[in-house]
Amino acid sequence: MVDGKKLVVSASPHLRTKDTTRGIMLDVIIALIPALIAAVILFGPRVLAVTATTVATAVLSEFLARKVMKRHNTIGDLSAVVTGLILAFNLPVSIPLWMAAIGSFFAIVVVKQMFGGIGQNFANPAIVARIVLLLSFGQAMGNWTAPLSWKTDAVSTATPLAIIGGESTEALPSLLDMFLGVRGGCLGETCSVALIIGGIYLMARKVISYKIPVAFIGTVAVIMLIAGKFDLEFVAYELMGGGLLLGAFFMATDYSTSPIKSNAKIVFGIGCGLLTCVIRLFASLPEGVSFAILIMNLLVPHIEKIMAPKPFGTVKEKKTKAGEAK
């Protein structure tokens, strides 16, 4: 006979997937590495200093915030590292490190931990931090360093979308340069090819579904195609310019702040795309991805409520009534 006291008794199921939160976050980090490498090549070693600052601040802030709130330590799940990385990708390489640190602290403490930590925040921490920095330190946040100029003399440049918007008379980078990331912009957003590789990796690993990125990017493509009077080149610049790819693959797909069900995901993606275009085409900002995602983050509870799935076998009430009438 087996002594009952030594046996584990737990509710079924007795099998569990090997996936963990930490593993998922590790996959996101892996997916961000190509863009990080590209950023170092394009904008120099200072990229690493900025990234190290945001990541270190994020992890430290999370550790301290959990301590102060007397909650269990969660830095092991690596989500703070992901937030730090994504925030760094949303900053210009020339940003003073203390500003980057403030942004990171704000993202983790105010946006994430004050609302209950991982899974509970209503808006993407990195996006809110970026917007806070944009409003607080507009100049530093709009100081774009020309790519590949770090070896000699760092010169400033304008972003392609600003050039298209008529705010600068500089020449537009070629489409190939856009694809490779040889253009002005936030340090992690410029290299389209690296971001696409990262995005495909996440989809292949089933960390994210294709629905949000495809709906988001697709909507921008369609609207820009119409707005640009079917000028494909214009569409290509709009898709590769600004933070669209970074936003669509890595920020709009954040679990906590996007819908769970597939059809709601598509609506969310289309909403992000729509708002991005509205901001880019009609507002005074050249770039609208962050604001678009933030607004859609706030709408997620409503989208989920309206599009709540019907439990298996549930029939619409109207139908049953009609059936009974017969």
Binding site: M1, G4, L7, V9, S10, S12, P13, H14, L15
Partner: peptide
């Protein structure tokens, strides 16, 4: 043994002995 189940691992019942 650390766990004994009657039935399958997905829906079965962990027993105490």
């Amino acid at each position: 043994p650390a766990k004994i189940i009657t039935g399958g691992p997905m829906m079965g019942l962990a027993i105490v002995g």
